[in-house]
């Protein structure tokens, strides 16, 4: 009897958690806090960055949509520009072990060096915990959190949902637009868009 009681309690706890997860990443709500480890073994908590803008960028180097923005230098330039202006830029890899896009820490560090990427850190999320917390769907999928810890952008990197590098020129970059507005103290006019890219390769 006691055992049954414990089992049903567990189920209730899980349900509550699932509900809060589904609600987690809404614009205007507090962005869910997380703890994650980067490719250098450092721990990062969202709460460490209170007072700063934080960009989360879901990444998979084997995905043609990610390649569009990396092989062109677009993503690296954005990382360099915005970290230069005091923004924390966290690249997140949620590919599970055995899934496409899974990387080891040393492998990823070599890649970052090779492409001259400039995020604040690359977070490894092989369990998909962080990905599910934000409900990241695609690579790339971009989120922006303001200094008060509120989610202010959730969506695509820009308005050209293709894997074609020639579409970067002339595209409206939603991340830069949102950061410019937020840094100027203005509301973000386009806080949500449909992210585009490959699906995040979560564990089964």
């Amino acid at each position: 009897m006691k055992r049954h009681f414990a089992a049903s309690l567990t189920a209730i706890v899980l349900l509550v958690l699932a509900t809060s997860l589904a609600w987690a990443a809404r614009i205007g709500d507090p962005a869910p806090n997380f703890t994650a480890t980067d490719t250098n073994g450092q721990t990062h908590k969202l709460s460490d960055y209170a007072g700063k803008f934080v960009v989360l960028e879901w990444h998979n180097r084997g995905c043609p949509y990610t390649q569009k923005h990396y092989n062109s230098g677009n993503m690296e330039n954005l990382q360099r520009e915005w970290t230069g202006r005091g923004v924390i830029w966290l690249t997140v890899i949620s590919s599970a072990p055995g899934k496409q896009g899974f990387v080891t820490a040393s492998d990823e560090n070599a890649y970052v060096k090779q492409v001259n990427a400039a995020p604040t850190a690359v977070l490894l999320d092989p369990t998909g915990t962080l990905g599910h917390l934000y409900d990241a769907k695609t690579t790339p999928h971009m989120f922006i959190i303001n200094p008060q810890g509120t989610l202010i952008y959730n969506g695509a990197i820009d308005d050209r949902p293709t894997a074609d590098r020639s579409d970067i020129n002339g595209a409206k970059n939603y991340v830069s637009a949102a950061l410019e507005q937020a840094l100027a103290g203005k509301p973000v006019t386009t806080p949500t868009t449909r992210p585009y890219g490959c699906s995040v390769k979560y564990p089964d």
């Binding site: 084997g62 995905c63 894997a163 074609d164």
Partner: peptide, 10 residues
Amino acid sequence: YLICREICIP
């Protein structure tokens, strides 16, 4: 067109 399995190929 985009064709995908685990990976995607434009």
